[in-house]
Design a protein around this nucleic acid. Structure first.
Length: 466
RNA sequence: GGCGGAGUAGCCAAGUGGUAAGGCAGGAGUCUGCAAAACUCCUAUACGUCGGUUCGAUUCCGACCUCCGCCUCCA
């Protein structure tokens, strides 16, 4: 299994730190809960979900930790503007985030630590950095990390710390740092913070953003762990700073594999409220799209390529899913209660082997889906030829269910139609037998209004819920 | 200005030094009372531009164009 590691800029063979090669520590940067997350945020979370699911599929025992940033500049600004208490605001948007993740069938992390519940760990880490002499308290009372004291600074982004130039955002910065590249570990309380402040050895204040991830990831996964992911915008400075503060404090390598996903664009442009192409999941649900359609859309493209999100793309995803579902339902009908036996596995070797080979190659999910659709066409041909027996169908279903533990698209359940629908379908069939096709078509329309499609097959009419 | 990523048919999107998966959309056909689904064929001599290396490049190299990201708290 190979992954593109931002640290080495190479496709690296994955080897867990665990000597037994079993346990894998995975940390993914979670949301800042001051608003609804948008479709771009969820691209990253779906990618991380795919990664986690595939590691589990490959037999690894994954411990997945994702933080919730529940104290931060934007949160404080929102609190100031709206007057809503911070805890209420962050609880509300954390719940909304969790709802959205469920809708996308994103597995919940095993640990979901919040920054405000780890102030003690954060202070302990800053204290260690102060003791090592790599952090200092500036005249503004805030505590900063001195990148000049950490010679490996820039290893992730491949930048020379001396080359950092002050951008426009720095001009807005009112901090009294020794060097432009230094970043805040502890931010001294100011007027605007109100009562959002904690006691610390350096006075009242709150944690900087980067330090929470170091403190919480190391608490739950150890000082060195396997994988850390996020969107590509987090490479610098967030992840670079995490490496600096973590490694400076422990003297040990922090993370072995850094994986970053490319951004999502909407209609070929950067998503922005100004352009009117800004989508939250809620907006998309209101347009009639489902979580699994959106999951498929976000999942279908390789994570290191920019994804161009369009509503047409979600409609294409819907059609693709219908093709998959159609086959699965047919297979369920043929398989019935038959359980697959070992001998039937031969027919699905190509599917499973191709799928795994694609995902082993840096999670090439597009190629994996290509393999799946090739298989779907072949299976449809076999079905049309009547060549698929119950045990063969059961074997295919079993294989697909296993692959779906990775894709997370869900397998449709055969739903038996209620009695009134069955009765209507019976009347229609009687009308057809009597060659009263006008009446039959009326009844078909009536069924459609009630949410059922009737399809005439060689084995008789078949009811399908819309 | 610095660093990095991307440009494949109508749309989305894999991949490769020897003329390129898959999905969607549109069209035709088979099947059907008509549909639906499925299958077959077409749209499809599709690889940003210009050079170079090579027997041969979409794939390697160079330049250029366009788009995107990061350059102090944005997935």
């Amino acid at each position: 299994m190979k992954f593109f590691n931002t640290l080495t800029r190479n496709l690296d063979e994955f080897r867990p730190l665990d000597p037994a090669g079993k346990r894998v520590g995975l940390y993914t940067c979670g949301p800042t809960v001051y608003n609804f997350a948008h479709i771009g945020n969820f691209r990253a979370f779906v990618f991380e979900d795919l990664l986690r699911r595939y590691l589990a599929y490959r037999g690894y025992d994954v411990l997945h930790v994702m933080n919730i940033t529940d104290v931060e500049d934007k949160i404080i600004r929102t609190v100031r503007q709206t007057g809503e208490p911070m805890r209420q605001l962050t609880a509300r948007f954390t719940a909304a985030f969790e709802d959205d993740c469920r809708a996308l069938n994103i597995l919940p992390p095993h640990q979901q630590p919040r920054a405000t519940e780890h102030i003690a760990e954060i202070i302990a880490l800053i204290r260690a950095l102060m003791e090592k002499g790599v952090a200092y308290q500036a005249p503004d009372k805030s505590v900063y990390f001195s990148i000049a004291k950490f010679s490996r600074y820039g290893q992730l982004k491949k930048i020379d710390a001396g080359q950092l130039r002050s951008g426009e955002r720095v001009k807005l910065d009112e901090y009294e740092k020794e060097s432009a590249g230094d970043f805040a570990l502890w931010k001294a309380r100011d007027e605007a913070d109100g009562d959002i402040a904690w006691e610390s050895p350096w006075g009242r204040g709150r944690p900087g953003w980067h330090i929470e991830c170091s403190a919480m990831s190391m608490k739950y996964l150890g000082e060195s762990f396997d994988m850390h992911c996020g969107g590509e915008d987090l490479v610098f400075p967030h992840h670079e700073d995490e490496i600096a503060q973590s490694e400076a404090a422990t003297g040990k390598p922090f993370v072995r594999y850094w994986l970053h996903c490319a951004h999502l664009m909407v209609n070929g442009q950067k998503m922005s409220k100004k352009l009117g192409n800004f989508h939250t999941l809620r907006d998309l649900f209101a347009k009639g799209f489902t979580g699994r359609e959106l999951r498929y859309t976000l999942l279908g493209e390789h994570y290191r390529r920019p994804l161009n999100f369009t509503l047409e793309g979600v409609e294409a995803a819907r059609a693709s899913l219908a093709r998959i579902d159609e086959l699965l339902v047919k297979l369920q009908e043929i398989a019935g209660d038959t359980s697959p036996n070992a001998g039937d596995a031969a027919g699905v070797e190509g599917l499973v082997g191709g799928f795994e080979a694609a995902l082993d190659d840096d999670l090439n999910v597009s190629a994996a889906l290509g393999v799946a659709f090739d298989f779907i066409r072949d299976t449809n041909k076999a079905l049309a030829a009547g060549a698929l027996k119950p045990d063969g169908a059961a074997a295919v279903l079993q294989a697909w269910q296993r692959l779906d533990t990775v894709l997370g698209l869900g397998v449709p359940q055969r739903a038996d139609a209620p009695a009134d629908i069955v009765a209507l379908a019976g009347q229609r069939q009687a009308a057809r037998k009597a060659k009263d096709f006008k009446r039959a078509d009326q009844l078909r329309d009536e069924l459609k209004v009630k949410g059922w499609v009737v399809e005439d097959t060689p084995k008789g009419p078949k009811l399908k819920q819309i």
